[in-house]
Design a protein around this nucleic acid. Structure first.
Lengths: 166, 166
DNA sequence: TTAAAAGTGTTATATCATAACAAAACTCTA
DNA sequence: TAGAGTTTTGTTATGATATAACACTTTTAA
């Protein structure tokens, strides 16, 4: 079982994360014969550069600033590609997109989402994964994917007085 | 641990479900000093009458047919009320709303969603609930709510040949 | 009975996402 | 390397989901 704060800006060098994620993405795409085109690559970088899940139109605005086409299909195509390639996750309860920290291995996207600062931690929890599969099977249900999003108050925000939270 | 198919039209009298749900809703609202007004009550009934999670605009159309105001705020206000009262759940991955089968007791909304027929089963799973709370606590995260949505193929659809699935 | 609170009506707009078809870029092989 | 086939991108339009803001009405409770 592993746990990591996906977008912690304090305790590590976020640039390193971005570089690693992009390098992993390159490798995976090559392995799978997929093309990580300019706009897809830049979209992935921008998602990683954001410290929080990024909305499609936020991403579109950033891409537009850099001279990419600014119509919605551009960004949704890039997002579809990245989602299918397993390079990002969609946080359903926020309609926003987040770099996947474990793109190189089979895993589940489980999230802890802070209501106050909107930071998100991705985690893996094999026991729960297995339990849910077993549970579904008892109903004859063939599980394909899971959306596990837990919201509440993160440790950092809990430590701050109410008034000054982000 | 309990399991029930929320909207099974074959194996039980759905009218009975609706009646029970409405009676429970009345009781809960009275207990909590909440007002189950005409539009809120009818919205809840319509959500229950649907055999699948119902979109906000689908609900709005049904309400409009019956002479209720047909502007979006009408339906979103009713939905907000019902969500806050714990009488319905929102299925985030579908942007749709579903009658809650356990409104009268504290519980979690865990869902099995069929990709083919779009029927949804709500279930309760205390062990996973506890495990997730414990997991969040190890991170200093104070859990407030959970979105647990599992998608795949339900037993009924698995039994049908590919071509004829709903 | 009347002031405050809660609920509803109404208009406008914000936000999220896709359809459809044309044009360009890439890739693969003869 | 020409060119057919495939993939990707550009472009316009529209569909789908959700909320802001303010006026008006109904209900509640002193």
């Amino acid at each position: 079982m592993s746990f990591k704060k996906t977008h912690d800006t304090n305790s590590h060098n976020h640039n390193h994360c971005i570089e690693t994620a992009l390098a992993t993405a390159e490798t995976l795409c090559v392995e799978q014969g997929q093309r990580l085109t300019k706009v897809r690559r830049r979209a992935l970088e921008l998602i990683w550069e954001s410290h929080r899940p990024l909305g499609a139109y936020q991403l579109l605005a950033k891409l537009a600033e850099e001279g990419f086409n600014s119509a919605p299909p551009t960004v949704y195509r890039a997002l579809d590609f990245l989602l299918n390639a397993g390079l990002i996750h969609k946080v359903e309860s926020m309609n926003a997109y987040l770099g996947c920290a474990h793109a190189d291995k089979v895993h589940q996207g489980y999230f802890l989402i802070c209501d106050d600062c909107h930071n998100v931690m991705e985690f893996d929890y094999q026991d729960i994964h297995s339990a849910l599969i077993a549970k579904a099977e008892t109903q004859g249900f063939e599980l394909r994917s899971k959306t596990i999003e837990l919201t509440g108050l993160c440790a950092d925000c809990k430590a701050l007085p109410e008034g000054v939270r982000p």
